[in-house]
Structures are given as C-alpha cells and as structure tokens.
C-alpha cells in the first residue's frame, strides 16, 4: 500500500503550473503527468498502484484557486474549493443548495475536508456527486493551457467517458461558473449507497421550476452511476400538465429511465434504483419550491 515513485513538482502560481504541465506534455508524450489537488481519489489509486504517474504537479498551495465569487446570476468557484466548504458555507448553500447537498454526500468528513471541486470534475468518476450537480446546473468549466490559452467547456461536453474528460494533457481546470438557484426553483438530490460514505450505486439530481399557480414550468434532471458519465435524462418535451402528484413523478422517472443501460453486474437492479432515486428527487424538488413560494408569499 505504498505509491510507486514519481517526480514531484510544486507549483507556486497558476502560470507556473501551466508551464509545468506544458513542458511535460511537450517533452515526452508517453510520460504520465497528473495534477495533484486534494488527492482523495488520486492517492487511493496510487496507494493501490492502480495509478502510477511519472510526475505529479502539486497545485494544492494555489490559494487563489480556493476563492469563490458571487455574481448576480451565478457563483464562480475556484478549482480548489473543498467539498466541505461547498457543503457547509452558508452563503454558498443559499445560492447553490443542490451543490451543497451533493457535496455533503461525498465520502466522509475527513475526505470532504481535502477533496476539491476541480479534482472531482477532472477525475470524472461516473458515480461522483459533483459532476452530476454541475451537469444539472448547466455549469461552465474554465480550463487554461500555457500554449493554447483559456477556453470554456460546458459541463455537458466535459466528460468523454469513464475517468476521461475532454481536457488536453497540458490543460488545467481553474474555475467553474455555476448558475445559481432562481426563485421558484426547487432542488432534489437522492443517492443510494450500501453504507454512508460509500460509492453511490445510483443517484439523481434535479432542479424543478414551479410557476406561482403550482404548475411545473421546467425540469432539469440527471443521474449518476447510470452510464459511463453523468447523464441528463429530462426531456424538455415531456411537460407536466396541472398540479403534479406522486404518480406524476413516478411516471416521469419510469419514462426517463426506460432506456438506461447501466454498466453494472445487475442492470435491472441499477435501473430500478435510478428510477426510485429520480422519483424521490423530483418530488423533493417540487415540495421545496412550493415551500419557498409559500414562505415568500
């Protein structure tokens, strides 16, 4: 349970980190360089020697990337914002309650104290909570490279497959812009795991926008652990007419999970869990939106 040897580089600024990543990508295309942020997935894999990077670029000391900025309609989160901050910071929780709930489901407190938003997104585990939350929120991910400069990637386009993103080897995830919760919007996040802190077997996240009369104006919902990446499953054409009931959510969840092909030993069981999580998340989101409206009235 000891990691294989590697070369260690400590970045003192974002620019220096980009130089290091650029230099290693340029020097030897076969050499495997990984970015070390919180290390809560990377060290597990390295201790088990499932990952044996040749070189680590440690960005853990870049305090500038631990900052958050509150804009009018969105919140900008640094790549090094920790799960525990997302979970417990009252100001962030007010703007991004779905993200706070998702972050609170990750591992255990000691893991959340170290794990970072950028690390979770870059790792791209299909069962991870934050990639799903970013997808449902329609977040925009900012990446930088020493040679090709800055670009943004929509959360929908960010994950290519299991543990694989559309970032290039010399690119670093720096910031994430997350549209904040709007009035009339309720959130739902439900996950099933064999025990607290364990990897999710299935999970659903959603944002449900409710009109003042109680009818549903919009739904955006997604699933984790249901495919090789987090999935958006809501279909804009499937409107909900009138006031939704328990059956409405059951029907929608069944409809939106009908074609899932989970990569698990028992796809029927996973599909069942996805449907149950989704139905519960939709009902929770609607109830929260209505409660907020009643409190505001």
């Amino acid at each position: 349970m000891k990691p294989a040897p590697f070369a260690y580089l400590r970045a003192r600024s974002v620019a220096e980190a980009l130089e290091m990543l650029g230099a290693s990508a340029h020097r030897d295309a076969d050499a495997h360089t990984k970015v070390l942020a919180g290390g809560q997935s990377l060290l597990t894999l390295m201790n088990l020697r499932l990952a044996r990077p040749d070189q680590l670029v440690d960005i853990g000391g870049l305090m500038e990337l631990s900052r958050t900025f509150e804009d009018t309609d969105s919140v900008v989160l640094g790549a090094l914002v920790r799960h525990r901050t997302l979970e417990t910071d009252p100001k962030l929780g007010k703007r991004l309650p779905l993200v706070a709930a998702a972050a609170g489901q990750i591992g255990h407190v000691a893991i959340r104290n170290r794990g970072t938003l950028g690390g979770s997104l870059s790792h791209a585990d299909p069962a991870a909570e934050l990639p799903l939350a970013m997808l449902v929120h329609e977040a925009v991910i900012h990446v930088e490279s020493a040679t090709s400069g800055r670009r943004t990637i929509r959360a929908e386009d960010f994950v290519e497959s299991i543990f694989t993103t559309t970032m290039q080897a010399d690119e670093l995830l720096t910031w994430v812009t997350v549209p904040s919760a709007r009035p009339g919007q309720g959130w739902g996040f439900v996950e099933f795991a064999p025990r607290i802190g364990d990897y999710a077997q299935a999970g659903a996240a959603c944002l449900v926008t409710v009109a003042p009369d109680g009818s549903v104006a919009a739904i955006r919902a997604g699933l984790l652990a249901a495919a090789d990446r987090p999935l958006v499953v809501s279909e804009p054409g499937d409107e909900v007419s009138g006031i939704p009931t328990h059956e409405t959510w059951e029907r929608l969840a069944a409809h939106w999970t009908r074609n899932l092909e989970p990569l698990t030993d028992d796809p029927d069981h996973t599909r069942h869990l996805c449907r149950a999580a989704l139905s519960q998340a939709l009902a929770d989101a609607y109830r929260r939106a209505r409660t907020d409206q009643e409190e505001a009235a």
């Binding site: 349970m1 000891k2 290390g39 809560q40 060290l43 597990t44 201790n47 893991i111 170290r114």
Partner: peptide, 24 residues
C-alpha cells in the same frame, strides 16, 4: 487500510480532520 477507507490514520491539518494515508 492505507487507502482511505478505515479512518485509523486520521489526524488534524490546520484544524481539520484528514486521512494521513491520503496525503503526501
């Protein structure tokens, strides 16, 4: 366990609990 599961190696870093097996 030395891979972040058991919690026996938990210490505080800057006042926050962390797994010392998951930190270089």
């Amino acid at each position: 366990c030395e891979h972040g599961v058991c919690g026996a190696c938990t210490v505080l870093v800057d006042g926050r609990s962390v797994r010392s097996c998951l930190l270089f």
